[in-house]
Amino acid sequence: MNAQGRRNLLQAAPFIGPFLLLYVGLLIYPLLDGLTLSFHRADPFGGRAFAGLENYARLASDPVFGQALGNTFKYAVVVVPVLTAITLALALALNKPGRTASVFRGLFFSSAVLSVTIITLIWRFVLTPDAGLLAEVWEAAGREPVPFLSHPDLALLAVAVATIWWSIGLPMMLFLAGLQQIPEDIFEAAALDRANRWTTFRRITLPSLRRTAVLVVMLQTAAQLQLFGQAQLLTAGGPGGASRPVVLFIYETAFTRWELGYASALAQVLFVLILAVTLLQFRAGTSRREP
């Protein structure tokens, strides 16, 4: 490294140093420690025995992990596009001055302030076939209530619905912010050109939101592939594992089975998968040239 480089590094150190220190200490070090752990049989109390690739060989042939992985991706493939579309639509509709839009923004943001313990409690009492809110409505209409939380084909969907309801706030805000950054004069110019609304939307609004959309999709993909609390508390992964995501499996493996090595191996695999998917999205989203 030349003198200039060293000087620049020295100059940058006070800015990025503190964060990097904590980042490495609190995230990267434990991650690497977890990687080491994944080559061991280990329990939470410091017992460790080297096991080579045993844990990885094991997960490759573990049907429960296979099911959990399938669930996780199935779920993300539903939640991410739906959530993105809903929040984009909401942002487009609510990117307006005035009281009405502001009240609506508040309403759609409100669920984001609740913790996962609470939203699952709420949705249990919406979805349960006995005396749930939907069941009451269904029964009032003379229909047999649907067992959302215990039907193998519906349980994961129930988790997805609860999550979408819960997660609208952040992406909607990001889209709103993206919209507000589009300079007003572009729209005025388009109006002068007598462009109709659809054309304006397609030619101006959407392209300007592309980077926001990529960000939202990446963040949501990473977040949804880490689905945990909602599934644990709403369906406990059931019935028959039909709604068990990978992270719940990791949690069970670590905390009720005390198989820390295996849990770490599972976590490493999930980490690599999330990384791969989000990187692909990033490349797909930024490869074309900006308009």
Binding site: T128, D130, A131, P147, L149, S150
Partner: peptide, 12 residues
């Protein structure tokens, strides 16, 4: 009874 969790069964 079917499809009941603990609170639902208790209420039943």
């Amino acid at each position: 009874t079917r499809n009941q969790d603990y609170p639902a069964a208790t209420a039943s």
